[in-house]
């Protein structure tokens, strides 16, 4: 079984708490300490954001964190070096999230090989369209055992969702609203209906909800319908200017799942 980390996580049928962090933020060397603190706090999966100069799909909090990370000197070479150094110490699944141009310039296959060598489970590339993934990259990514994680939105048709479900093998990333990342206060009725619709499709892959999740109430609303959540902007805010990363990360996670 190639996707062992992801599939054993989802096979447990546990509800998933996943955190999106920005590589190289707040400081360049904070990537690893934050990953370790997240794992120790009981987080199930980590999305590592790779900073990009022009992050179209992100809201202001993640944009600013990305700009900071770039100014700190983060780039794929540095990130891969950091991940190399932590090999064997992080056991939870890791997903890399970044914009296609960074991967393209690195060399798509070279990037995938490197990520796979370092034990990365999957890739989220929001601006690589699904049809292009299918026609050009699916076979190659699968040969390296990497899951391509597609995004879907309330506007994505059932037919398209099924297509994504059929041709991927990690999880589906449901964007809570057709919006850039950022925090909302609570899920409106139509968002809950969208979650219910996703549930009723009985998809092969688990569905994890991201964008706009900041409160434990959001989490409960998702957990009663789908398999898990991804928290991004709210987490980034909690480590901004942190003097004690381990303590702040632990407190943030405890605040979400109760402790």
């Amino acid at each position: 079984m190639t996707h062992s980390k992801l599939s054993s996580l989802f096979d447990s049928n546990k509800k998933i708490l996943s955190i999106y962090m920005m590589a190289g933020y707040p400081s360049l060397e904070d990537t690893i300490p934050i990953m370790e603190a997240l794992q120790d706090s009981g987080v199930d999966m980590i999305e590592i954001g790779m900073p990009y100069s022009d992050p179209l799909a992100d809201g202001p909090v993640i944009q600013r964190a990305g700009t900071q990370a770039l100014n700190n000197g983060m780039n794929p070479d540095v990130l891969f070096r950091q991940l190399e150094s932590v090999r064997g110490r992080i056991h939870i699944p890791l997903i890399l999230m970044g914009y296609f141009n960074n991967v393209l310039q690195f060399g798509v296959e070279r990037f995938c090989k490197k990520a796979a060598d370092l034990g990365i489970s999957g890739l989220i590339l929001p601006d690589l369209p699904f049809d292009l993934y299918l026609s050009q990259y699916r076979e190659m990514m699968e040969s390296y055992g990497l899951s391509f994680i597609p995004l879907l939105t309330p506007q994505t048709s059932d037919e398209r969702i099924r297509l994504m479900d059929d041709y991927t093998n990690g999880f589906l990333y449901a964007v809570s609203a057709s919006a850039t990342t950022g925090a909302q206060t609570s899920f409106p009725k139509q968002t809950l209906e969208y979650f219910d619709r996703l549930k009723s499709l009985s998809l092969k892959n688990p569905v994890i909800v991201g964008f706009g999740i900041s409160e434990s109430e959001h989490i409960n609303q998702v957990y009663s319908r789908l398999q898990g959540v991804i928290i991004g902007s709210a987490f980034i805010r909690s480590v901004k200017g942190s003097m004690d990363l381990r303590k702040d990360v632990e407190e943030f996670v405890r605040g979400l799942i109760g402790g």
């Binding site: 296609f100 929001p126 601006d127 369209p129």
Partner: peptide, 11 residues
Amino acid sequence: GGAFIPEMLYG
């Protein structure tokens, strides 16, 4: 060319 857009813009 092409359309390298996130799913949020697909519609």
